[in-house]
């Protein structure tokens, strides 16, 4: 009870800050206001997208496509951990679109009634084992990770990639003690890139993004722990019109093509 009332107070405070920020950005942007342009049907102005860190490569490409198709628009991204982004949104951060790496983090936003409409799953991601180039330890599947003397980094169970890795390891019946439970998927990948560990369990898209610096090993149990990525337009979107167009691009066949190119699976 106390927690909830405090949170409401925080939201109101943060909302005030957001309003001030909005006023500032409104002063900064030239030309017709975003809402009037949106009602006229032609997207313009800045679209602010909060997206899971794993979407960086794919969304950056889609942002460029969007800006080219709609001159006068600009897509600004904040890539980060889905939990952190969700917390910013429920505290009143002025964002238009939220794309999360898990339904659970999206639920934080929908539960707080900060979403406009229902989230749509637009891609899925699955796990892969990342090894240093050339796979020097000859890892072929999850069972090999339990070999004695092998240093493995996993994501912590608190973050989505860690929860998925645990599910896959359970499905494979593999018990292993990693040297570290990393705070996010990119730091688990970095440990492999620096060759401080012999392997880590990360997303397929991360292996793709670091191609050349790490090798990927697929394993069948990854199908048991597939992550859905939902996207939604936010209720307090400062530029809802253009943002709706961006969500349409993300969920379109063209968007799917770009994102599968980055290693994602179609929903």
């Amino acid at each position: 009870m106390t927690i909830r009332s405090v949170r409401r107070r925080t939201v109101r405070l943060a909302g005030g800050g957001a309003a001030a920020l909005l006023a500032l950005t409104a002063c900064g942007s030239s030309g017709p206001s975003a809402s009037s342009a949106a009602s006229a049907g032609k997207p313009s102005g800045t679209v602010t997208v909060f997206a899971a860190a794993s979407l960086k490569e794919g969304f950056t490409a889609l942002g460029r496509t969007f800006e080219a198709a709609h001159p006068g628009t600009r897509v600004v991204f904040d890539f980060g951990g889905s939990d952190t982004l969700a917390a910013s949104i429920t505290s009143g951060a002025p964002a238009d679109v939220f794309a999360a790496a898990s339904p659970r983090t999206m639920q934080t936003v929908t539960d707080a009634k900060d979403a406009a409409g229902t989230p749509v799953t637009f891609v899925r991601n699955r796990l892969e084992i990342a090894t240093p180039p050339g796979n020097p330890r000859g890892i072929r599947g999850l069972a090999d990770l339990a070999a004695p003397g092998l240093k493995v980094a996993l994501c912590a169970a608190e973050v989505p990639c860690g929860a998925a890795a645990r599910k896959a390891l359970d499905a494979a019946g593999v018990r292993l003690t990693p040297v570290s439970y990393e705070q996010d998927v990119r730091s688990a990948l970095t440990k492999v890139e620096l060759k401080e560990v012999d392997a880590s369990v990360v997303y397929r898209t991360d292996v793709r993004a670091a191609s050349g610096r790490v090798d990927g090993v697929e394993f069948p149990e990854s199908s048991r722990a597939v992550n859905d990525y939902p996207v939604v337009l936010l209720k307090n979107a400062p530029n809802a019109g253009a943002a709706r167009e961006f969500v349409a691009l993300v969920t379109s066949p063209e968007g799917a093509k770009v994102l599968t190119g980055a290693g994602f699976l179609a929903p």
Binding site: A153, A156, P178, V179, S180, Y181, E182, Q183, S187, K191
Partner: peptide
């Protein structure tokens, strides 16, 4: 710490 020493309870 978390970058150099990792995170293990």
């Amino acid at each position: 710490t978390i970058t150099f020493a990792g995170n293990f309870p």
